[in-house]
Design a protein around this nucleic acid. Structure first.
Lengths: 232, 232
DNA sequence: TGTACATCAGTGAACGCGCGTTCACTGATGTAC
DNA sequence: TGTACATCAGTGAACGCGCGTTCACTGATGTAC
C-alpha cells in the first residue's frame, strides 16, 4: 500500500522521473513475496527496457516476465499478449510526450517563436530521455488507431505541435503562408529524421555534428526560408 | 548455366528491376529439382519480403528458407545466420541506392540545383520502390561497419548526396555558407523523416499531404532559407 | 482487537510447436579423358 | 560422343531449447463482523 502510493503520487509532472529507472535488479526484489504490488507497471517498464535494447519485435513475452521477476503466466493477468504490452508502452509514451510538448510550448509563451523552438528542442530531448517509449511510439509499427484511447493521446501530442506552428504562421504574410499543418509536418519530419539518423547507433551516427545542433540549425534555416527569422 | 546468366546480366542499370518481384510462389517452383540455381539471391529476396511485412527482427531463418522453397539447413550453405541475411539485404540495398542517387545526380547536371532536387526526389522514390531494402538499411539496426564492403557501399551512397550539397553550396555567399556536410545532413534528415512518418502506415500516415509534396515543399523552404531560391 | 472468509494476483506444471543448428547423406552438375 | 568421377548444393532426420498459452492451485491481502 505504502509502496504503491509512493510510486503513483510523486508530484504532478510525472514525466520527470524516467519510468524504467525505477526497475530494480531481480535480487533486490527477491523478498517481494507472493504479490507484486504493481505488476502492470513493472511489466511495461520491463518491455520498455527490452524494446530499447532489442527493438520492438526483438523480445518475447517470457523475457519481459523474467525481467519483472515473474512467471510468464502472470502476464496474462494484465495484458492480452506481447502486442498489448507494446501498445501500453506506446500509450504511456504519448502521454509523457504530450505533457513534455505542452510544457515546452507554455515555457516559450507569449512569444510564438520561442514556443515553437522550445517544442522542437523538446522533441529531441524526449527521444533521448525516453528511447524505449519513443521506439514503441514511432518504430514499433503499432497503429495509432489500435484503441480510441491511444488515438486520443497521440492526437493530443500532435495538436501541441500544430498549435505552435499555427501561432507562428500568423507572423507570415498571408499570401506566402503555407498551411500550418504542412509547416508542422515539415518540422516534425526534420526532427524525426534527426533523431533516427543522428541520435542513435544509426547510419548517420558518425556525423561530426551533435543532433541537437543539427536540429537547431536546420529549423533555423527552415524558418528563415519562411521569412520568420531575419537575415543577418 | 543459362538461367544464371539470364538473371545476372540483364542490362547495366540492374536496379531497374525490383529484386523481390522475381520471386515466384512455391508451387510454381515445385519442378525445381535438387539444385536451386541461385539460392543466395532467392534467400535474400525472401528475407526482403519478410522484412517488409514483419520488420527486420520479426521473421525467422526458417521462414525465409520456406519462402525460398528450401530446407532451413540449406541456408547455411550461403549465410552464417539470420543477421548475415539481413546484412546482405542491406548491402544490396545500399548498392542500388547509390546507383539511384548517382543516376539522379547526373540527370540534373549541369545545374547544381536540378541535381540536388533530383537526389531528394530519388531518396523518397527509392524508399517507395524498395521498402525491404530501405528497412534493412535504415531500420534494422545493422551497423554500417559490420563489414568493410558494407561500409564502402554505404559511404558511396552518402557521398553522392554530399557532393550534390557541396555543388549547390558554392552558390551561397561564402560568409553565410554552412558546412556542406551539415547542409546535406539536414536534407537527409528531412527526407528520412518524411519517409518514416508520411510514407508508411506510421503515425503521420493520415496526413492530408502526399509525402512527395511534403518533401518537395519542405526542401523548397529550406533552400529559400539558404538564399538558394529567390523569393517570388 | 481478533477471527473467518472472499478475492484475486501470481504459481508451477503441462502441452504442443517451431525454432536454430548439426550431420551423414544424396543426387544433379560439370569435367577429364 | 560416351563414360567415370569429383564436386558440392540441398536433403531430411535428429537434437535440445524456449516459446506462448492453459489450468487448477495457493497464499497474501483486505474486510465483514
Amino acid at each position: 500500500m505504502r509502496i504503491m502510493h509512493q510510486a503513483e503520487s510523486s508530484g504532478r509532472p510525472e514525466w520527470f522521473c524516467a519510468a524504467y529507472s525505477v526497475i530494480k535488479p531481480a535480487h533486490e526484489m527477491s523478498k517481494r513475496g507472493y504479490h507484486h504490488g504493481n505488476l502492470r507497471k513493472a511489466l511495461t517498464e520491463a518491455a520498455l527496457r527490452l524494446i530499447e535494447v532489442k527493438g520492438p519485435t526483438g523480445f518475447t513475452l517470457s523475457e519481459a516476465a523474467k525481467l519483472a521477476d515473474v512467471t510468464p503466466a502472470a502476464v496474462y493477468r494484465h495484458f492480452d499478449g506481447r502486442e498489448d504490452l507494446i501498445a501500453e508502452a506506446a500509450r504511456k509514451g504519448y502521454e509523457i510526450f504530450a505533457d513534455v510538448m505542452q510544457y515546452a510550448y507554455e515555457s516559450g509563451q507569449p512569444s510564438a517563436l520561442a514556443s515553437f523552438e522550445a517544442t522542437g528542442r523538446a522533441y529531441l530531448a524526449f527521444a533521448r530521455k525516453y528511447p524505449g517509449h519513443y521506439i514503441a511510439m514511432f518504430e514499433s509499427g503499432i497503429s495509432i488507431n489500435r484503441t480510441p484511447e491511444l488515438a486520443a493521446v497521440a492526437g493530443r501530442a500532435r495538436a501541441v505541435l500544430e498549435i505552435a506552428a499555427e501561432d507562428l504562421s500568423r507572423h507570415i504574410p498571408q499570401d506566402k503562408r503555407p498551411p500550418s499543418s504542412m509547416f508542422s509536418a515539415h518540422i516534425w519530419a526534420m526532427s524525426h529524421g534527426v533523431v533516427e539518423l543522428f541520435a542513435r547507433n544509426s547510419p548517420g551516427a558518425q556525423s561530426p555534428f551533435l543532433a541537437e545542433d543539427l536540429l537547431e540549425s536546420g529549423i533555423g534555416v527552415y524558418l528563415r526560408g519562411l521569412g520568420l527569422i531575419e537575415n543577418d
